[in-house]
């Protein structure tokens, strides 16, 4: 085997060489760097999780804002609706009131007209009666009893009133 170069001290020297290399690299290269790799993996995982959380929070807050906006929109619509209803009610009330006052006014006017007409009719009737009596007195120039006179007058008046009504 020595022809191939087998040599026990050399073998031991290589073994020692390997072990020294293993210990030095293990302590000064493998461990620190693998730990660094692990911590990097952890930090990447954490930051990804944090990003996820932030995204979720953003999503929830956005939905909350949208909810509030919808709420506000609904509130606004309700207010507008209320205002419209109130305005409608107010308009109807006002129209009702206007109609009533107009009716009252026309009622009053009609009553006034009726009263005026009655007064005018009475006035005309009185004047016509007096006129008729005086006219009759003047025409016949004779005294007749009061009873006959009155009947005659009433008859004339009734005729006159009928004529007036027809007109």
């Amino acid at each position: 085997m020595t022809e191939l170069g087998l040599n026990v001290p050399a073998l031991i020297s290589y073994l020692i060489n390997y072990v020294v290399l293993l210990i030095l690299l293990g302590a000064l290269a493998y461990r620190p760097l693998l730990n660094a790799l692990d911590s990097r993996v952890d930090s990447i995982r954490e930051s990804l999780a944090a990003a996820d959380r932030a995204r979720e929070e953003a999503a929830t807050s956005r939905s909350a804002i949208e909810e509030e906006l919808n709420e506000a929109r609904r509130e606004g619509q309700r207010l507008v609706e209320q205002a419209r209803e109130a305005a409608e009610r107010f308009r109807e009330d006002e129209m009702e009131r206007a109609r009533q006052s107009a009716e009252e006014f026309s009622e009053r006017a009609r009553a006034d007209i009726a009263r005026e007409r009655d007064a005018a009719v009475n006035e005309v009737r009185a004047a016509f009666g007096d006129l008729a009596i005086s006219a009759a007195e003047r025409i016949i120039r004779r005294s007749v009893d009061r009873q006959a006179h009155q009947e005659l007058i009433d008859q004339v008046l009734a005729e006159g009133e009928q004529a007036l009504r027809r007109n």
């Binding site: 020595t2 022809e3 170069g5 087998l6 040599n7 026990v8 001290p9």
Partner: peptide, 19 residues
Amino acid sequence: EHHGLGLMQFAVTNTMLSA
């Protein structure tokens, strides 16, 4: 042909230096 190191003989070889 063989005139290298003996089985137990110690010397620093050129391969060791390389290692």
